[in-house]
Nucleic acid binder design. Structure first.
Lengths: 254, 254
DNA sequence: TCGGTCAATAGTGTATTCACTTGTGGCTTG
DNA sequence: CAAGCCACAAGTGAATACACTATTGACCGA
């Protein structure tokens, strides 16, 4: 297990190049985060401050600030006198993240039901619901529909989260979303039927919130998110057993 | 609402003095965190980097690193070109934190029940249970018993958390514990009877884990933690209505 | 030849300095 | 007298230089 110079160089860090392509308007932290979440940097690698600063064309100071921040988000590990390394998420933690999200988003939905929705909230959600209906009533997905629904879905969830009026909860859920997938084997394929079902979930959740049924709203949302975990686990099982080519289909959130 | 120099000075930051008393072996981050959680710095104040560095007798660089880290933990807010300020937690968020903890610790207990306890885990928990029994069987609390039970209680919860084998979950629960109480009005008084009941909860939770009943274990733990919230809310109500002197009794965790 | 020790180098930790933004107080002008 | 503008001061943002730690590779001795 001795480290040849070549070993170290390849394992530690290659400069993806696309890091510095991004408009430098984006903060260093954001660029780094995207590079990690996008898989450009790879899990487990040790981040070299001087090399990063050269790649990003800034000094070490903002790089260090970004590393500190990302470590706070749980994306990096810090070892004294050894710097920061990209944290590796074992498969179990990736799967668990969906359970955590289910609990937290369920709780957020309960809060939203307890505290009520503003008219703006209702507008956004109703728009999301009808847009989704329109998209799904066609019966099939055309090009771009996936990412369109991804946005619709995001609006729905974000609005409920905002209505929960709890910042800490929002941050925790955000962290759950930022768990980097260790490999693209974990990507879940969504068929039209599944999305239809999940969109119907949205309708029911919204009704439960409107009719001020916190407990029911919470249970519905919890189940809604827990369903994604099931999809993921099933996909993984199929791949592990059969490994039958249909991996890496585009996921679009939930 | 104009800011006289005096206004600003007193509102922004006073140098608590005890910050620099701590052994400088403790990292700057830890010293700052303690100062914030201990209430020495006060909520809402803007942290001046140069003054902090003078007080702590280090340069601005490690101070900035600490601020970044604490912002990541959610203890500080960051405003570009204006630096960091101690985040204020409205009462609603403090109360909510117990709900979040209830969900998360419930989930952790479910994981622990699913994954099982190591012999070391069992040893620690059984010790905590018997120690607590011994302490409570006396029927009354003597001096120091409160903090003794606080440790016992911590061992119980920490062990279960460890058995959940999920780092992200652990960090989130830790954050919940680090919500700074905005005033010491929020401190909950525990009577012997309450602690007895909560300790009996521990026994039941342990049994549920041992007998591999994840769902039951989760529900028990969720209720266990949710009970603290009820105590807090009741205490607050009593104080708000009557304001009858029995505030600021020492709490000791749960 | 293998193991241990030492030196060199790469890399992080800290300090200091300069640049830039912002807020504030005073001054000027209508 | 009020309102707006300008200048100065305070404080953060970034860069650079220096100090210290750790790791690695080579050399020496057994």
């Amino acid at each position: 297990m001795s480290n040849t110079p070549l070993d170290r160089a390849s394992r530690e860090q290659e400069l993806p190049g696309s890091i510095r392509d991004g408009r430098s308007a984006l903060s260093v932290t954001d660029r780094l985060r995207e590079a990690i979440l996008g898989g450009e940097i790879g899990t487990g690698v040790r981040l070299n401050e001087v090399r990063l600063s050269q790649t990003m064309e800034v000094s070490r100071t903002p790089v260090r600030a970004a590393l500190q921040a990302l470590a706070g988000e749980g994306l990096l590990d810090y070892v004294p006198n050894r710097g920061f390394l990209v944290r590796t998420f074992p498969l179990s933690e990736i799967v668990d993240a969906y359970d955590i999200r289910a609990q937290l988003e369920g709780l957020a939905t309960r809060f939203a039901a307890e505290r009520g929705l503003s008219v703006q909230d209702r507008d956004v959600i109703e728009q999301a619901l009808s847009d989704g209906d329109a998209l799904l009533d066609k019966g099939v997905f055309e090009t771009g529909d996936m990412s369109r629904y991804r946005i619709i879905n995001g609006n729905f969830h974000d609005t409920i989260l905002g209505a929960a009026k709890n910042r800490m909860l929002g941050e925790m859920i955000r962290i759950c979303h930022h768990v980097p997938v260790s490999s693209n084997r974990n990507i879940v394929a969504f068929e039209h039927r599944n999305v239809r079902r999940r969109h119907d979930d949205h309708h029911r959740i919204y009704e439960a919130i409107l009719s001020r049924e916190p407990h029911r709203a919470e249970a519905l949302m919890r189940e809604h998110v827990a369903g994604i975990k099931s999809l993921l686990v099933n996909t993984l099982k199929r791949q592990t057993v059969g490994d039958d080519g249909n991996r890496a289909l585009p996921d679009f959130g939930e």
